[in-house]
Simulated assay, not measured.
Amino acid sequence: MTETGLATGETPGAQTLRRGLAILKLLARNQPDGMRISDIGRRLGLSKATAVRLTQTLVDERFVVHDPASRCYRLGPETFAVGLAAEPSYTLQRLAMVSLRALALETGDWVFFSVVQGFEAICLSRETGDVPIPPDALRVGDRHPLGVGAGGLAILAALPEDEAEAALRANGAYIDRHYPKSAVSVIRPLVQETRERGYAIIPGIVVPHYWALGVPLLRQDGRPVAAIVLVTSEARLHPMRRAVLGERMLRVSRDVMSRAEQEGSV
């Protein structure tokens, strides 16, 4: 995002709204520490004056709070209220939380949970493992096109063939441009392997020396609504452990969906 001009057909008001939302998204990815104005402006390509004006408006509306001691801005109470209103959409994540934490503690690896939104997967949570994790790993709020990463791949492979193709057509140019290591030509054979195996394996192509496993969470009609992802170092994921963890994650996904169905959440 930069301040150089407007997008085609975009009004100044729409641009202001887009920048304000970008600030909220950025702060969501940097909770609970928060960020200073200079960092907000730098990350979003905004001048200091624009960053101050937009952030102060969010403070006035209680979507953001300012900590004078640290000079950092964090998400405020109105953001929390909006999140509570949207909570029914996150029931699966709530139901899965205990199982995800247990899986992370049991394995020592990192465990992520993402939900489907259109042709994208959005990360809602991640549980800490013992192994170091790359700085560009998924963070809460991050979104990726279906097919990118183990979660997106697991979801894509679980879709009917025509819908999977529609997703790749819709996202293909964007994926090839922004995720060249996970280009569509790479994704297609991985989709077939995932369907045959039952869970996705990303063999260090997104981040060198880090592998990921992904399993979909399926409704009774077989439609994917979310994914569980485990990320660890290549050295820790020998073939036998891959198979054991893949089956373990599939059991977790079935258990979560069984509980969701009992609650009438899906």
Results as ranks from 00 to 15, higher is better:
Asp162Met: 11
Val215Met: 13
Ser70Met: 01
Glu127Asn: 03
Ile175Ala: 06
Glu78Ala: 09
Ala51Asn: 04
Pro132Thr: 02
Gln262Ser: 07
Met257Ala: 09
Val52Phe: 07
Glu263Met: 12
Ala51Ser: 04
Ala227Met: 15
Pro189His: 13
Val266Thr: 09
Leu153Glu: 02
Leu95Ile: 11
Val116Met: 14
Ile133Glu: 02
Ile133Cys: 10
Arg94Leu: 11
Lys181Ile: 07
Pro32Ala: 05
Ala167Ile: 01
Thr2Pro: 05
Met240His: 07
Leu146Lys: 08
Ala200Gln: 04
Ser38Glu: 07
Pro160Asn: 09
Leu95His: 07
Arg18Gly: 02
Leu159His: 00
Leu84Glu: 03
Ala85Ile: 03
Gly13Lys: 14
Gln93Cys: 14
Glu106Met: 10
Glu263Ala: 13
Met35Glu: 00
Thr11Phe: 15
Glu87Asp: 13
Val115Met: 12
Leu21Arg: 14
Ala121Asn: 15
Glu234Phe: 08
Tyr174Trp: 10
Arg139Lys: 14
Leu44Arg: 06
Leu153Asn: 05
Thr55Asp: 05
Arg19Asn: 07
Gly149Pro: 00
Ser47Asn: 04
Arg139Gln: 15
Gly264Thr: 01
Gly147Asn: 06
Asp33Ser: 10
Ala49Thr: 04
Val98His: 09
Pro180Trp: 05
Met240Thr: 10
Thr232Asn: 00
Val98Leu: 08
Leu230Lys: 11
Ala173Phe: 02
Leu44Ile: 09
Phe113Gly: 07
Asn171Leu: 01
Gly76Glu: 01
Asn30Arg: 01
Gly149Ser: 01
Arg53Lys: 13
Gly214His: 08
Gly204Ile: 11
His238Glu: 09
Glu3His: 02
Ala164Arg: 08
Pro180Gln: 02
Gly129Ser: 06
Ala154Pro: 12
Ile155Gly: 02
Leu156His: 07
Ala85Asp: 08
Val82Ala: 10
Val244Phe: 06
Arg259Lys: 13
Pro32Phe: 01
Ile187Tyr: 01
Lys181Arg: 15
Ala69Tyr: 08
Val131Trp: 12
Pro77Arg: 03
Ala226Leu: 15
Lys25Tyr: 15
Val65Leu: 02
Ile23Tyr: 12
Val191Ala: 07
Ala158Leu: 07
Arg71Met: 04
Leu124Glu: 08
Val225Cys: 13
Gly41Trp: 11
Lys48Ser: 02
Gln262His: 14
Arg126Ala: 01
Leu138Gly: 06
Gly204Phe: 12
Thr16Ile: 13
